[in-house]
Simulated assay, not measured.
Amino acid sequence: MDRGKTSFDCSSRANNFIDSRNNKIYMDLKDIIREHALHFLPAKSLFRFQGVCRDWKLWISTPFFAHNQSLSFHTFSGIFLQSPGNPPSFVSIDPKSCGMPDPTLKFLPEPVDIRSSSNGLLCCQGCDGDKAYYICNPVTKQWKKIPKPIGDHGPDPAVVLIFEPSLLNFVANYKLICAFPSADFDNAIEFEIYSSIEGSWKISGEIFFANRKLMPKSGIHVNGVVYWQVKHSRIVAFDLKKDRAQLIHGFYGVKGLLGEVDGKLCSAYVNSHSIMVNVLSNVYSNTMQMNSNARTWEEKDRIHLDNSEFGEFAVGQAIVVFVGGNVVLVQAGRTILSHDTKNKETTVLCSAAENGTRCVSYVNSLIYI
């Protein structure tokens, strides 16, 4: 009897030890997910995960977590669509995981036009009064009004927002740069830069004499350089560090679009039944010796288009409205298709886009302003 009782006690203690070990494993796994996985998710998913437990809710709500998420999550999440005179709307690449509470941006003090976006932040411009610039995060509804610029940016400013999350900065430090026609010199372009650190605008000493008309909605920032398309298949590039501008040749097609792929400037355009994606390889190719094999652009990808995907519209009527990362968006009529260059899949992102609608890409971030 004593031996049986001893055996039972040992078995009971062993089971209790195993249960204790299992509980510890479960707790450790929960902590691992919280500490090392959550910040790789988009904002909408994180708001849903706040309901898992009180610990996760408090953790996701901290500025430290929002900072880590802005550093870790840079995935294309969807596009803002805005036609002239109408409020914006948002189309998510995955409605279950990416979204926002107020896609029309009614939390801002006045109706706005979206001008640019960068890693979760939007640059908007008021439609009335002095047409002020606003920087906002549409997920958190935080916003700031930017001081009035020094130069005249015109009715459709070629402004580009630059926000690059930094490990050392818990609050977003960003810049706005606008290329605008010079008031002092004919056929010249000047550049004005706003810094959130300094809280003021500064006009660059660089004056670019090119006799070229900028395409305001074409601006993009890649690795410290801002690029704008100009007419006659050219690109104006402004280097922020060198404070210098130059003209880049060889950009293909009036319907081409600038973007970023693998950390390089790229151009994408529809050619016959394909989307051509080229990357900038040598900005000095036009100064190379004769018969040099150096080329300004190199082909990165060629995506075949099927007429059946566009319904009543022919492939030749399609235009590229976004290219970045692994995503290319193409519009024909009211239909916008999304093509993933990695898995080679094409899906319908939106079937109700109006003519003249502007598309602005967005990343679903929790970043604090």
Rank of each mutant, 00 (worst) to 15 (best):
P157I: 10
A268G: 04
R3Y: 02
F180T: 02
F80M: 10
K141H: 13
V226G: 05
R334G: 04
I275P: 06
T341W: 01
N169F: 11
F40E: 02
K24D: 08
K202V: 10
I303Y: 05
E164W: 00
G78W: 08
W59M: 02
G256F: 02
D9F: 13
A352C: 14
M215P: 00
H232C: 11
K30F: 10
A14L: 15
V327L: 05
N15S: 09
A245E: 04
R295I: 12
K231E: 14
S281V: 11
T75H: 07
G316M: 06
S195C: 07
L121A: 00
I369C: 06
A318R: 10
I367A: 09
N307G: 03
Q331A: 04
F238M: 07
P101D: 08
A188N: 14
S117T: 10
F107A: 04
G219V: 06
V315W: 05
S20M: 14
I319E: 14
I150H: 06
S267A: 14
T335S: 05
P181H: 09
L168D: 13
S20W: 10
F310P: 02
L257S: 08
E298S: 14
L58C: 12
P42E: 03
T6L: 15
N23E: 14
C350R: 13
H273Q: 07
G333P: 08
S97Y: 03
F185P: 00
G325K: 05
V328E: 01
S365Y: 05
S365C: 10
S195W: 02
P138A: 07
E299H: 09
H249P: 00
A245N: 05
P138H: 09
R3C: 01
L176V: 06
E164R: 13
D301C: 11
G311A: 03
C178T: 15
L108D: 01
N271P: 00
V283T: 05
N364L: 01
N22A: 12
E345C: 13
I25S: 10
K213S: 13
K106V: 05
Q142P: 04
W201Q: 08
C266Q: 01
R48C: 08
